[in-house]
Amino acid sequence: MTSISHCFTTLRQQGQCALIPFITAGDPDMETTAAALQALDANGADIIEVGVPYSDPLADGPVIQAAATRALQKGVQLDQVLAVIQSVRAQVKAPIVLFTYYNPILNRGIDTFVNQATMAGVQGLVVPDLPLEEMDVLLKPATAAGLEVVLLVAPTSSSHRIAAIARQSQGFIYLVSVTGVTGVRSQIQNRVKDLLSEIRHMTQKPIGVGFGISDPEQARQVKQWGADAVIVGSALVKRLATGSPSEGLQSTIDLCRQLKQALINSGEDLP
């Protein structure tokens, strides 16, 4: 399976900006999650971020909180999330990044967790409540298991912190585009442009921008500012949970295609 880093190397050679859709596993149900992973992969996703439902998602806004709550009510836990990833792994070419809060990892045991995630076919991890200072415990076991651990940079991060995070982050650097939690925003702050250029001067690593990007226009904007990847979560999660599972899936695919269309170079069309 392609690593996240390798995926970005290829995209860079093609001059492409990656699309990273996020879905909450188990919402509206596991069958839809399995179908969505394959559909997103077939409709423009370069990397897919899969959220593990958690009872206290501090970094998430109302849309993803609600999705996690619904999934938990259906009994979706880490085991089921890993199982669904494993079940579609052979059909999905995009690397998969698992987005999970730290307590479910700690509860399972870090070594067990990273091994199980690798076995299921996960390529990377985002742990939003594990900042640089607390990351050491996860970084070594994850790397040893072959997982890339993506660290987050926020608009509030100092230059000094950004440099340290950029050094440690693997796969790409996740630039949080808003001072806030996940969720649809009407516009992307100009500050993101400056942050992108600031990070660009510190590292060669790819930079993905997420939190608040919801439509093709915003995606195009962030790409023009120099992002290597655009991460879209809440807007897709909301669509996937609206209407019947098949309606939700179709509407999710539509947005995925529109986002990809906005990101590919002018003159090209979706394959």
Partner: peptide, 10 residues
């Protein structure tokens, strides 16, 4: 410790 999103660390 400090198990919080990066946004709060500063």
């Amino acid at each position: 410790g400090k198990y919080v999103p990066e946004t709060l660390m500063p």
